[in-house]
Design a binder for these strands. Structure first.
Lengths: 233, 233
DNA sequence: CGATCGCTTGATTCCGATCAACAGGAGTGG
DNA sequence: CCACTCCTGTTGATCGGAATCAAGCGATCG
């Protein structure tokens, strides 16, 4: 495992780099540039924990580089991944009754993340209607995404799940036909509610059927994107 | 089927009763009393649609009486229920990329619902920090709930799902040991990602095991709540 | 009273899980 | 450089839980 970065950095760590200097606001996405303006950047090593399931949900996070997964565990070790977050994505919004996260969040690979106090975002939002709307829309979109995940987990076959996953990853990589997967088969399985064996077998079947080509375990070429579209809802 | 109310009321319908008169603000839950103050009350017959999956997400809703389900359908008829909403609950927050709902919403039984323009809530929130926080927390809680639903749908056995469902319904009825179910077995099955047969069988097994008692199909007595607790996460 | 709908129960099938073995790389140290 | 180990991923054989197919039952309603 990589050890290039702290495995469990403290929020008080001196390695935090504040981004408060006056800049011409490059604002990659215009929306939610508040992260770049008021947030602190932190590094996490692959497989290290960013926050725990029962920690108070004090911060919001934005991925700069790498990939993050949210994870929920049962007592006997069964694992479910709620979502993968890629550069540009915001996570950490979910907060249960007790004010704690419903998931834990972990770095899939080494990554950099901008951290922002939850209260900072909301209090800024009070004076900035556009920001408020942006945050609001982001939460609403997360909820809509959860809808798609539920029908996938509750009603779709193994093939449909894997196809939906490939389709999603392609869409998130600007529709690229050569999809790069930062996560392991185990992560994919826990995301789709399947076992590693079933994920592996299904990928092999898709390759045999001429739908995809496994360039390597972590690089998949979509040979017949139309088929993927057809099976994904 | 009951026909006591409009099956597909228009938002322009004259039956809308505005609640704008000055009242002493009874505010059942203090939070989000904005619904009672600025919303319009509408009635829906059992099994009628409140909004469709692809309609623009213009309104927020609060259940006054009855029960509501959010539903997502696949082309071949497979159905997934995202959540049940009981009196006091707010729904309709989910909104996808296209500005449309990710689910459709339907009345489970005859019900009354307060409807509020989405923009009305957010613009009021801009001038009322407490309201903004309340709305924000509500969305965050919905997201945390989605986490629990995902591990249920992705990783739990039929028995665990049914037990979790009974436990949830009991908790939402003030922890009552005699649970009233407004929804059909089919609805429960589509909520839990199972078939009606499996739901029915599992309930029978729980009764045989002395965990519950089926007073009637829609009334279930929790005889051994400790067992339910133990199996639910 | 018969019909319909929702629910339960039974028999069988099948998809994905489980158990098990093996292959291919990446990293390590001799 | 190679031998070794560890880890991830693939493939094979078998099993099992829930789906499917099929009746039957009971309540509600016309």
């Amino acid at each position: 495992m990589s050890t290039s970065q702290a495995t469990r950095p403290s929020f008080l760590s001196s390695e935090i780099a504040l981004h408060t200097s006056a800049r011409p606001a490059p604002a990659p996405s215009a929306r939610l540039a508040v992260f770049e303006m008021a947030g602190a950047t932190m590094g996490f090593a692959g497989n290290s924990e960013i926050y725990g399931e029962d920690e108070p949900a004090e911060y919001l996070y934005k991925v700069v580089s790498g990939a993050v997964r949210t994870v929920k565990l049962l007592a006997d070790g069964r694992r479910q991944i709620g979502a993968f977050y890629l550069p540009g994505d915001i996570f950490g919004m979910e907060m249960g009754e007790a004010g704690t996260h419903g998931f834990s969040a972990e770095a899939v690979v080494d990554c950099r993340v901008i951290v922002l106090k939850r209260g900072a975002a909301t209090s800024l939002a009070e004076r900035n209607g556009a920001l408020a709307t942006a945050l609001w829309n982001h939460a609403a979109r997360d909820l809509a995404r959860a809808a798609g995940r539920m029908i996938l987990l509750g009603r779709k076959s193994a093939e449909e799940r894997v196809v939906a996953f490939l389709h999603e990853m392609s869409a998130r990589q600007a529709g690229a036909h050569l999809v790069e997967l930062p996560m392991s088969r185990q992560d994919i399985a826990d995301y789709l509610g399947l076992t590693v064996e079933t994920v592996s077998r299904t990928l092999t079947l898709l390759e045999t059927g001429g739908t995809i080509r496994l360039a390597s375990a972590r690089r998949i070429e979509l040979v017949d994107p139309a088929y993927l579209e057809g099976l994904d809802d």
